[in-house]
Write a protein that binds this DNA or RNA. Structure first.
Lengths: 159, 159
DNA sequence: TTAATACCAAGTAATGCACTTGGTAATTAA
DNA sequence: TTAATTACCAAGTGCATTACTTGGTATTAA
């Protein structure tokens, strides 16, 4: 299982979609503005999500995206797997003869860790995620904040 | 906590060092050949490991590397943190006002997952890793396999 | 003195991420 | 019918990181 910022963007966008999706479809333009993710990048992410039927797109004015199925039935692992695709932690691509016929030294370790992470993320769905932080009353959602504070974005956010 | 191939290289190399380190120091050249990792890249990784005192280098002919402390006292998390350095899973670099004064939507999720992974990797040390797979009798170790099968390496291991 | 090793710094090719640009297709509202 | 709005699509760009290369210097055993 791979964990990158890409997967995190996708989860954030899906969470936004869950929160706003009560009345009608949500446009990518809205998600882009609220979450500070570029529109075209969202399009790419949603192309992956759509391929896995995690979202459903509606074209034309008044269109946008719906969740592909109830929020209770979409796990975080589903989302991450859709955009990041499953990448083994092992170097050998999953086959057993990675190092000259022998399993590579740390194969089992990464296997176990991968399962650990997958289980953790499989047991959390979008509905639970909404519950957990009391996000709904948070002003975080759909406040049309201006992007003035995100010039180029990124920047150095190490520490 | 960041999980990249870099960290996996480091763990693999440290595991090799643990297995071979019984009698005298182990040279990077040996690890390079056995594990199929370039010598100079190993040097860079070991510079990080040395800085965190996870290994101890001995110069000159007959030199090489020792573990910096007993294998029981070196966790996988120690190794990965040494080379990958700790990177928050959250987008905001750890501060609480990531999105206009509010914590970003999925902050808690990544926080929890990060802890989950860290705990998992903290509870496994090199000695346990050696035990677990019966690696010692495996022919995997120090067989002087030729690198003919690893031309450019990498390749596409998605799927 | 030589060879083997660690140690060091700079540069390079490949990759993936986040984004940009410039479209086409479908649908609604005028 | 037309225009606007949205999803949908493909190619390319800048950047950071990865994994590696090159070309050294420092230390020490033989």
């Amino acid at each position: 299982m791979r964990l990158s910022t890409k997967g995190r963007y996708a989860v954030t966008a899906m969470l936004d979609l869950t929160l706003q999706g009560g009345d009608g479809p949500v446009t990518l333009a809205e998600i882009s503005e609220t979450q500070g993710i570029s529109l075209s990048y969202l399009e790419q992410l949603f192309a992956c999500l759509r391929a896995k039927q995690l979202v459903r797109g509606v074209r034309g004015p008044g269109g946008g995206y719906y969740l592909g199925r109830p929020a209770e039935e979409i796990s975080i692992a589903d989302i991450i797997c859709a955009v990041d695709e499953w990448v083994e932690f092992t170097r050998c691509g999953g086959n057993r003869d990675c190092r000259d016929g022998k399993r590579c030294l740390t194969h089992n370790l990464w296997d176990d860790l991968s399962n650990e992470i997958f289980n953790f993320l499989s047991n959390i769905n979008l509905a639970q995620l909404v519950e957990r932080g009391g996000l709904k009353e948070g002003g975080c959602i759909r406040e049309k904040q201006k992007e003035a504070t995100l010039p180029g974005g990124s920047g150095s956010q190490a520490a």
